[in-house]
Design a binder for these strands. Structure first.
Length: 242
DNA sequence: AACCAGGACGTGA
DNA sequence: TCACGTCATGGT
């Protein structure tokens, strides 16, 4: 049996489609934007046709950097500031005054290094049109495995599974991997368990984030996690001996 | 009022 | 390889 596929089905039935990656605004006004936060825009549950424009694609790339070790709430403030100043644009971003741009992205924290990383990423995207190779993204200073995979999966619809702190916390909590598992090891067990489909990867990652926010915050006991009873390895081991 | 959020890099052992 | 310090802001 395929536990990771069962977990996906369970999470999907619990929470439904998540509509990731969140965008500042959606391109089609006719679209009904139902979001979990109650805000009017950003998410597009069940619609896997985003990004629809080059600007949205770039917005995802920039957002992936801005949210590094930072809550999405803060990253989104920085993203909005960039958008208002017409800096969600490769050439504008590159030529804009660094002091001013840093001030705009200040809410996301680490604004000095994030500025440098955004410029390096923008220059890369300018030089390499089309879908980038993972290794090429990883060679950019400031783009690590999670950011690279987020860009590939959500901006370019490449089925490359994203492993973040939430993902690690959940699969470790269920005993599916050991603590010292590497990023690539965890990535591989997901990719080996699922059909290579960007929609599934996008949805799964988003569902894991939603699930972690509900049950894996500090102070939460893992017994309250609905996945725990069914999928925890030690628990299953005990059951088998009855 | 600590604690931490959708990480990544540089350093020394 | 790997553990550890650094980068920075603002919400709970």
């Amino acid at each position: 049996m395929n536990q990771l596929k069962e977990i996906y089905e369970m999470l999907y039935s619990l929470y439904g489609p998540q509509g990731w990656w969140p965008l500042l605004e959606l391109s089609n006004d006719r679209h009904i934007n139902i979001t979990k936060s109650g805000s009017l825009k950003g998410y597009h549950p069940g619609d896997y046709s985003y990004p629809k424009t080059e600007a949205q694609k770039l917005e995802i790339c920039i957002g992936a950097v801005l949210t590094q070790n930072t809550s999405w709430l803060q990253a989104e403030k920085a993203l909005k500031a960039l958008k208002i100043n017409n800096l969600i644009n490769i050439d504008s971003l590159i030529k804009a005054d660094s002091v001013k741009t840093k001030e705009l992205i200040r809410p996301a924290g680490y604004f000095n290094q994030k500025y440098e990383r955004l410029i390096l990423l923008a220059k890369f995207l300018k030089a390499h049109k089309g879908t980038p190779e993972r290794d090429a993204l990883l060679s950019i200073k400031g783009i690590g495995p999670e950011t690279a995979d987020s860009i590939l999966l959500y901006a370019f619809r490449v089925p490359s599974f994203v492993v973040d702190a939430y993902t690690r916390r959940i699969v470790q909590g269920l005993g599916l991997v050991v603590e010292k598992s590497t990023y690539d090891e965890i990535k591989k067990i997901f990719e080996d368990s699922l059909k290579k489909d960007y929609k599934t990867y996008q949805e799964y990652h988003a569902l894991l984030v939603e699930h972690a926010k509900r049950h894996y915050k500090r102070g939460d006991s893992i017994e309250n996690c609905p996945l725990f009873q069914r999928f925890n390895k030690k628990h299953l081991l005990k059951s088998n001996h009855r």
